[in-house]
Design a protein around this nucleic acid. Structure first.
Lengths: 314, 314
DNA sequence: ACCGGAACGAAAATATCTTTCACGAGTGAC
DNA sequence: GTCACTCGTGAAAGATATTTTCGTTCCGGT
């Protein structure tokens, strides 16, 4: 019964700008342009739509009709005039517009985290800051040094990793990963034990120190010991000019970003260090793929049953 | 600071991802998070939706059902699972997402890391992936649950944190942070000791479990013990439908991203977990600012001299 | 005052979405 | 191996939302 989608007469010329395609974001402008050619009721509808896209997107035809004190038919007519096939499509466009507006309003994140920031802002700011840190770190990483470090790790007889405090966790993270691909690695956060172990190292071994400040004595000491025994030494630090680099064959620089009272430096330095560590790991895994792949599979397999009997569907 | 941390009303059953409000842009992340708990047909629908938001937004239920070779009922079910009242609302969200994508925020496709990728590519891909993970996590975090968890932590007499393997490091990270602002917190990665400690907890204490799979028995057990003693329990997991949430008063969902041979899931889950943990920390620090600020300053001060005689500027 | 026509909304007609229900595949128990 | 049972699934009924139709009202011009 319905022959075509196009409505023949309908009277009134000006059906929008003719073959106007669905307006993307230029809706407000379109409303203003077309307003003069609208009837009073339609203007009310158009006004409501332009004034609060998000709100209107949540309404049905009936709802919007009531809100503007008009009828469904008028709402549909307005939608048509604005260039959409019907109200449904106008609504979709409205939702898109609302989303854009909201996401555009987001970058209030340049400011520090305040004591009275709502929790949602905290999430947004932290995520943004950490993303920034990642970008900075990636941009600042010297791939030559990284490549050299990877080569050393991949060929190492054994690897010792030193880190204290927050950096200690990063050290453990690296160690866990290296172990998973069948390498021999240890993390040390006890300075005495670290030195004790370091003096056992020799050429062909690798010592890796992680310190944000670049001047954590407890971490530098073991690195120095290893360095003096002829081991290959790597430093992951935010201060490439710090004391630690004296004893490092390869220096990997992590990014340093501003900190604040509520956002201690440990946070971004940790993020940065972890990225570096991940890069090291993947690099080593690539180089030792033949042995790494089966080792990874094996450790995965070994852990599978530890995750309880229950499990989402396959 | 009253003891108003009354147990989340009535039922102790965790609210899972239930109270999650319609997600705006977190849709792709949500799909990935929930996919494992979906049936095959629903997965097909979810996949289509995540793969082509714009295209799907143009389809009616019937259209999408046909496209995915399923029925309308399944489409609606999927929409529900994703947190929308019905398909209509999902469609609206889809339109919003499409608009956002088009307006620049194009989520470029990530190719997997290959064995022969040059090191520079590895860095770029890892950084990008982790950024993506952060964005997903932030978008998918339920701020209500987060706020509740923060309140509980801030008021807790003591806090125990459980985590094993990679999650164990995250647990330690949180613990370190909480200690810095003067709270009493312990991390446990030994299952036996964890349970032993858990049974000591009671109302007013907090137990927090970190597990990506949501079904790590060694972590669930202590949480359960704490739960049964009346402590407030929090779960940080990538599987809001996993067993762990049975014993959790508050569930914080971390994002799940595709993994590959060279990029184990542990990597992105760790990134995601750390963001959540950071949010918890900052939230708690805000709430306890009066005591947190001096404590932070004090610990900073105490560590300063450990960084040896500094060369660069302080 | 009367006519023509446009604006408008009520309600019918249609499209779309939601819910119900029964079938069939898979699973565990016996 | 068979049976009872649960769960996923889609067909179709039921409920909403949207679009169309059509009659009424309100103007301005003659």
């Amino acid at each position: 019964m319905k022959e075509t989608f196009v409505r023949a007469s309908g009277g009134r010329r000006a059906t929008g700008g003719g073959s106007a395609p669905p307006a993307p974001a230029a809706l407000a402008a379109k409303v203003r342009t077309l307003a003069p050619s609208m009837t009073r009721s339609m203007q009310r509808v158009a006004e409501a739509v332009a004034g609060d896209p998000a709100g209107c997107a949540a309404l049905t035809v009936t709802g919007l009709a009531e809100l503007t004190g008009t009828s469904e038919a008028t709402v549909v007519r307005t939608a048509r005039l604005l260039g959409y096939p019907g109200y449904r499509d106008l609504r979709l466009a409205l939702a898109g517009l609302a989303a854009q507006q909201q996401s555009g309003r987001a970058p209030a994140i340049t400011t520090d985290i305040a004591v009275d920031d709502p929790i949602a802002d905290v999430v947004a700011k932290l995520a943004y800051d950490e993303q920034q840190t990642l970008a900075d770190t990636a941009a600042g990483l010297d791939t030559v040094q990284l490549g050299a470090a990877v080569a050393a790790l991949a060929a190492a007889r054994r690897t010792d990793v030193y880190g204290i405090g927050a950096s200690g966790l990063v050290a453990q993270d690296l160690t866990q990963k290296l172990l998973r691909i069948g390498l021999i690695a240890h993390a040390h956060s006890d300075p005495h034990l670290a030195v004790t172990n370091a003096v056992q190292l020799r050429a062909g071994d690798v010592a890796l120190a992680i310190t944000h400040s670049g001047s954590t004595g407890d971490v530098i000491e073991p690195l120095r010991a290893a360095f003096e025994r002829g081991a290959t030494t790597i430093a992951v630090t935010g201060r490439p000019d710090g004391p630690v680099t004296q004893y490092a064959d390869h220096v990997l620089t992590t990014s340093t970003s501003r900190e604040s009272e509520l956002r201690p430096a440990a946070m971004s330095s940790r993020t940065s260090q972890l990225l570096v560590v991940d890069c090291l790991f993947v690099g080593v895994a690539q180089r030792t793929y033949e042995s790494a792949a089966p080792a990874l599979a094996a450790s995965y397999e070994a852990l599978a049953h530890r995750h309880g009997p229950l499990r989402g569907r396959p």
